[in-house]
Simulated scan of single mutants.
Amino acid sequence: MKPIFVYCLLIAALMASLSFSLGLGAMDIPVKDVLLILFHKTGLFKHHMVPEQYETVIRIVRLPRVLLGVLVGAGLGISGAAVQGIFRNPLAEPGLIGISAGASLIAVAIIALEIGVLSGLGNLLGYYLLAFGAFAGAGIAAMLVYQISRTDGRPNVATMLLAGIAINALAGALTGLITYLANEQQLRNITFWMLGSLAGATWETVLALLPFIVIPVVLLPFMGKALNAFALGEAQADHLGLKVNLVKRRVVILATMAVGAAVAVSGVIGFVGLLVPHTIRLFIGVDNKYVLPASALLGALILTLADMIARTVVSPVELPIGVITALLGTPLFLYILIKDKKKLLQ
């Protein structure tokens, strides 16, 4: 398919899913009223009356949550595509270089170790302590992996991959140890956070996350041409005049920024960064100039739909969104693998 057609299709699907997501919940709101409320904010259709409780629910509860899902999904989707491009590996994702594991370790420590300096910081920063800690953990893990992978001043992709596996194993072991030592209440909080949720969405959360997602989403597509050169191999990209080390550094920093911030506010949401780029390449090919922005759109769409399912399928109970993304993603990912395998055998 032509990229412009895919973009238009994704945007239309995203707009439709946003409208339905804003209307569904404990209080069902007709899509017509949802659109009227949104248009009221632009000064249109002011003469149409909408129940005040509808406007309150959408403005205070649902709109921040939906926008948070769009931001988190876009960040995870485009980061997954960029990391796969830099590693030249379709099975790579941001979690592979320790970003998610580092964020999870610090967040779990903050939840469980409510003593000493953490208790004092918690009283001072409140909810933002968890967000800041998760973001810092992601940055530290990415920095460690990057430094370990440096050989003669140049980061090596294969070594970076192995270092990421090691950091993931270490962070996973420490997270498991902290979880084992946690009490029952802390264990419930840790489990729910590790499975991912957008339940804590507020306008403050959305505004805090906005720059950390917008910057990677805007800048990474400009690196599409460089990532296409990476597909030929680092040596060939270097011969083409590409500043290989600079590209790797920028991709890792931008991916860490997006994924670290997303994990900080929503917990661990798997499969989006891995599955989204695969799906996009089935429709528009492997040109990263088109794959990167399309991955941001599809990531936003998938997370919006997953969150809508998570909070409505067994209402009033809310399912962890990470469970939904795994249940939706696994069959489709297996289908993609089987389809690719058949192509290879032909």
Rank of each mutant, 00 (worst) to 15 (best):
L38M: 13
L240H: 02
F283K: 14
A82N: 08
K41Q: 08
V206W: 15
S295H: 09
I269K: 00
M308Y: 13
A173F: 04
S266T: 09
M223P: 00
A264W: 03
F132M: 05
I269T: 03
L130M: 04
V268N: 07
S100V: 09
K289M: 08
V57Y: 05
G75Q: 06
M49W: 01
V272M: 02
Y127I: 14
S315N: 14
V286M: 08
R249I: 05
V157Q: 04
A109H: 06
S149N: 07
I60E: 12
V6F: 15
K289Y: 01
N183L: 02
G153K: 06
A82S: 07
L68I: 13
E52F: 08
T151R: 15
V218D: 10
A173K: 09
V108Q: 06
A163W: 08
R65T: 00
A26Y: 06
E52P: 02
I190R: 09
I321F: 03
F39L: 13
P155N: 12
L9V: 04
L254P: 05
L274F: 13
F132I: 14
F135G: 00
P320M: 02
T325M: 01
R311L: 05
F222Y: 14
I140T: 04
L303H: 09
Y7F: 15
A226L: 08
L177V: 14
A16I: 06
V323Y: 11
I99N: 03
L121I: 10
L198R: 13
I309V: 05
I213C: 03
V251L: 01
S104N: 04
H239G: 11
R150E: 11
